[in-house]
Simulated scan of single mutants.
Amino acid sequence: MTTTAALPSVFGAVHLGYIVIETNRFTDWHRFGTDAIGMHHDALDSGVTRFRLDDQECRFLLRRGPAEDVVATGWHIDDHAAFEQIEARIRAHGVPLVPGSAEDAALRGVERLLRFPGPKGITQEIYTTPRTAPDPLRMRASGFVTGEAGLGHIALTSSKPTRVRGYFNTVFDARLTDYIDETISGVKLKIRFLRVNERHHSIAVAATRGLPLDPIRTRVQHLNIQAATLDDLAQSYQRVGELGFDMALSVGQHTNDKELSYYARTPSGFEWEVGWNPLTIDETTWRPTTHQGISIWGHTPVGQTIVDKLDQFRRGARSLTRREDTVPALSGTGIPDD
């Protein structure tokens, strides 16, 4: 097996670019994305629809299907040299890559698309040169923060968090930002936050302490996007409630990245965090630490019943007998258990 240890780091050249969601609930997603969250919507045909946050053609691609979940994440790579470096290290570990078709690339609004297996069955896609849309944005929000920090972040639950962390370290040279220890309904959690650029984290990985449980039905626990203004955050929070969508957590402020945010429940069941004003990382001074609890204030659960808690317990128990795919060839060595 070829070693890639001597290759330079791609950290900083990687940005979360788009998310692919499979759903049959297009009407509900249209209302949720445009009327509640405030994004720009483009309906391409009966089986594909997209949301925009900025001048890029696609930030969320929804395709028709039964998963009701995230099925792929797209990562924008700054240049061809970094793209080829990531491609080489994946091939060196014996993991297959599949070129995206011209149609796949067009739907995502990108060029030079490659896909390969990712943790929890979420396909990872890398691309260069996102296309910009000629039409102006039509959306209820004044804007969203993307740019060098990327789209936002994706949060997973895992029974093998060290392997998930190792995967993103191997592929993207992800760095550990910090940890949060939290207890929810008597269950102790440890959450790892990983960054690939100046954004505090592009990936969060939550795991239960003790038994390797995974109580979440979907592959992702939540997605995050960053509102441009506090007014955008407050107004979308109000619209979510007025339009009858479920709120998972009320407005609050996180302990680690200091982001003000709320969590709504999407039509597919996973959560959607809208945040504002998280801190950015200064690589010259940052050191990983552990925070106690996810919130300084707020983030109060909304509408959770004892039935919901029992359902989570049953899912967690069933996960003990279910194999979690971590793509072992890319899960890395040299990262200590934590």
Rank of each mutant, 00 (worst) to 15 (best):
P267V: 01
L62Y: 15
I216E: 08
H153Y: 13
A227I: 01
D246V: 12
I19K: 02
P134D: 13
R318H: 11
T266Y: 06
A228V: 02
F51K: 00
T49C: 03
R265I: 14
I225H: 04
Q221F: 09
T162Y: 08
P301T: 06
G74N: 12
A106Q: 13
R91G: 00
V196I: 14
V307L: 10
D173V: 02
Q85R: 15
D78W: 02
V220I: 14
L7E: 15
R163G: 06
I191H: 04
V171D: 08
T128H: 00
N277C: 07
V14R: 09
N224Q: 15
P336L: 04
A6W: 13
S268R: 00
L151T: 09
Q312C: 00
D325H: 12
F11P: 03
G17C: 04
P8G: 06
L233T: 02
P212A: 12
G121Y: 11
A227W: 03
G275F: 08
L137E: 10
A88H: 13
A206S: 14
Q56S: 04
I86E: 02
A106M: 09
V48C: 02
F245S: 06
A248N: 06
L44N: 03
L137D: 11
D257W: 07
H200T: 04
I281M: 10
I281S: 09
H40R: 00
R323A: 14
T34S: 13
G118E: 07
